[in-house]
């Protein structure tokens, strides 16, 4: 079984097997023969005309798949949706990335795509919030905005000059701090209307990047006050002295509360469990998993153990079957 390397006891094995079988039986009726592998021919109705989409090719007048995945049909269009593959960007996607290089007027970000993405200095809001031309001074101060290894949230702008361009023209985009970055398979995150979530009861912010990078961090109010923001920026980098002259007491005040930190870890572990099991990652399921861990009174570290994994699988099977009945 892929990804699952946990010592399961005999009963746990049986329970997990049962839950997974139940999941399989729930989905098998919907699309039983839609899965294809490389070079499988896809049956299409040639009389209506066919548009070959991604993941397909023509061979001797037949449409064949070029990746392993699921066949999707939209009117005349036939394409194969690859499951395990790198992120395929679409304009307007919200992504989370890590800065790997600060270059001339741009940052290069790793977003799990074929190439590094580019975030131009001109396509993001300056910290002072004023719209103006970017000067040479701004360029020199780029490291004060994002440094190497910073985690950044941005939006896909499109392809220009053989590169993927990002933009961050709003308060909600920008540097992410005080939290955890999780990397999951991109196919587990579905494109939705809302990718920024705030779990009020835990005081946790959750960003489900379309590229499979998930951010779990302390909740930050979107604020316009630049002074506050700057103070915030300096104290998040406590480890770097000299840059900030904040007193110890002030730092303590600005520290994330222990309770919130625990919830961040709990949410992060919930996502880890879901991704190892290969379940899709949505706000609803994450919330349920966190609640489950709280109701069974598990410690955060125990959430990655085999017992919780089995529990989550069972709960998911239950959830899907009840969803099905409702319809």
């Amino acid at each position: 079984m892929r990804g699952l390397q946990l010592p399961l006891s005999q009963t746990q094995k049986v329970r997990l097997q049962k839950a997974l079988e139940r999941l399989e039986s729930l989905s098998s009726k919907v699309n039983s023969d839609a899965s294809v592998t490389i070079a499988d021919s896809i049956s299409v109705n040639y009389e209506d005309g066919v548009l070959k989409g991604h993941g397909t090719a023509e061979l001797n007048g037949e449409v064949v798949a070029t990746v392993c995945g699921v066949v999707e049909r939209v009117n005349k269009l036939v394409y194969v949706r690859a499951l395990r593959s790198r992120y395929k960007p679409e304009v307007g996607d919200i992504v989370v990335g890590r800065v790997i290089e600060v270059a001339q007027k741009r940052w290069r970000l790793d977003i799990n795509f074929n190439q590094d993405a580019v975030l131009m200095l001109s396509s993001m809001n300056l910290p002072d919030g004023i719209q103006r031309r970017r000067t040479a001074l701004d360029e020199l101060n780029m490291r004060s905005v994002f440094e190497e290894n910073d985690v950044v949230c941005a939006e896909v702008r499109g392809f220009q000059h053989d590169g993927l361009q990002l933009q961050a023209r709003s308060q909600k985009y920008g540097k992410l701090k005080r939290g955890q970055l999780l990397r999951v398979a991109p196919y587990l995150v579905k494109r939705q209307k809302q990718h920024f979530h705030h779990l009020e009861q835990y005081g946790v912010d959750l960003i489900l990047g379309c590229n499979g990078f998930v951010w779990v961090g302390e909740h930050i109010e979107a604020k316009d006050d630049m002074i506050e923001e700057q103070a915030d920026q300096s104290d998040s980098q406590v480890s770097r002295p000299g840059k900030n002259a904040v007193s110890l007491e002030e730092q303590e005040q600005n520290c994330t509360a222990l309770e919130t930190r625990k919830y961040i870890c709990r949410t992060a572990n919930a996502i880890r469990v879901l991704s190892t099991l290969g379940f899709s990652i949505t706000l609803e399921i994450i919330k349920e998993t966190v609640n489950l861990s709280l109701t069974v009174n598990l410690d955060i570290n125990e959430m990655l153990g085999s017992e919780f994994c089995v529990l989550v699988a069972e709960r998911e099977a239950e959830r899907r079957s009840s969803n099905k009945k409702k319809r």
Binding site: S35, T37, R84, Y187, F279, S280
Partner: peptide
């Protein structure tokens, strides 16, 4: 094929 099917049904 087995692997693809498994990934798909697990994802839901």
């Amino acid at each position: 094929l087995e692997n693809t099917k498994e990934l798909e049904y697990r994802r839901g």
